[in-house]
Amino acid sequence: MTKTASDKPMRRPTGATPYAAIWFTLGGAGLGYLCVAFFAPHLLPDFSGGRLSERASETQVLQVSADVEYLKSSLTKLQADVESVKSDVSAQATQTLQLGSQLAALDEKVHAAPTQTSALVQSSPPPTPDVPDFASGATQAHVEDAPAAPPPTKVINASPQPAPQVGAPIVTGSVTKSTSADAISFGPAVVKPAPKPIGIQIATDASVDGLRITWSALAQTHPDQLGTLTAHYADLGTAANPNFGLIAGPIKSKADAKKICKELTAQSVSCKISDFKGAAL
């Protein structure tokens, strides 16, 4: 029994269909794109358009603006620092000029003071003691032995006398001498020397100029103790070893001098009580 043609199995065509070829082509293109994107991404075109470049340019502009603002603030701060340095330099220059003028004035005073002091010492006469003046070489014993002035007389009248008449004799009352109690006697003259003024010795130096500088510094540093005092210098050394002492005074009493010395010693200043002697500094 034979089969009909419709009963025979149909064979599929062995050749590639167009549909399979299209998919094969698309798959190869995708695989190639992935390989290029992985190994050489710079070869791929920019599909994002100009948006990314615009955003990048805006970001760069903002960053540049921020940098410019930072530079402006830095320049402003630098200018302020320069102005401050200029003001400091000008103030320092002014102070230097003032110090220079003060030093020049002090130098002039230092050079002029010895001449004034020597002229003052030469012009001032030596002090004379307060001694009573005995004229014509008379001594104190002669004055004591000289007769005192006659005491006044007293007139004692027993009764009031009538007015004298013309040609009548003049009648006087009795005249008696006063008692010895009415006589004035002078004792021997006593000369009391004036008490020496008190001072404090606060420094020594080999030159008078050094004492002037020391006194200027001490008077400015300790105005409460030395502000009202005057400075003298006294020669304490010899010709081979000159030494001068700085003496401040006058001070009313030794108690005040001890108090001032105690305060100066507490502030590391040497001090001892002395006579206020020497010449003006």
Rank of each mutant, 00 (worst) to 15 (best):
C261A: 00
P242V: 00
G227Y: 02
P223N: 12
A231E: 06
K272T: 13
T265C: 13
C261G: 06
S216A: 14
N241S: 00
K259T: 09
G249M: 10
G237A: 03
A248S: 14
K272R: 10
S216W: 14
G237N: 06
I247E: 09
T221H: 11
G210S: 15
K254E: 06
L264E: 07
A219V: 09
S270Q: 09
D235F: 04
G249N: 10
A257N: 01
L226D: 02
E263T: 06
N241P: 00
I260Q: 04
F244A: 03
A266S: 05
K272G: 13
T238Y: 03
S216H: 15
T228W: 13
L226N: 05
N243T: 10
G249I: 08
K252V: 13
P223C: 02
S268T: 04
T221I: 15
L229C: 12
A248Y: 13
I247L: 11
A231H: 07
C271A: 04
G245I: 13
A234W: 01
G249E: 09
I247G: 05
V269W: 10
T265S: 12
K258T: 01
I213W: 08
K252D: 12
L264V: 04
N241V: 04
D275K: 00
T230P: 05
P250T: 05
K259L: 05
T228R: 15
L211I: 04
Q220R: 12
P250H: 02
A217Q: 14
L218V: 05
A239G: 12
E263I: 10
I251Y: 00
K272M: 08
C261D: 05
H232I: 13
N243W: 14
A219Y: 03
Q220L: 12
P223R: 00
R212L: 14
L229Y: 10
D224L: 11
T228F: 13
I251G: 01
V269I: 10
L211P: 00
I213K: 14
A257R: 03
L218D: 07
S216V: 15
D235E: 08
G245F: 10
L229I: 12
I247Q: 07
G210R: 10
Q220H: 09
C271I: 02
K258A: 08
K272L: 09
G237Y: 03
L264P: 00
T238H: 03
A234L: 04
G210H: 12
V269Q: 02
S268R: 09
T230H: 09
I273R: 07
I213R: 12
K254A: 10
I213Y: 12
Q225Y: 01
A257K: 02
G237W: 05
Y233T: 11
K262E: 07
L264A: 03
K258V: 07
S253Y: 08
D275G: 06
Q225K: 02
S274R: 00
A255L: 12
T214G: 03
H232L: 14
C271K: 02
S268E: 15
D275P: 11
L226T: 04
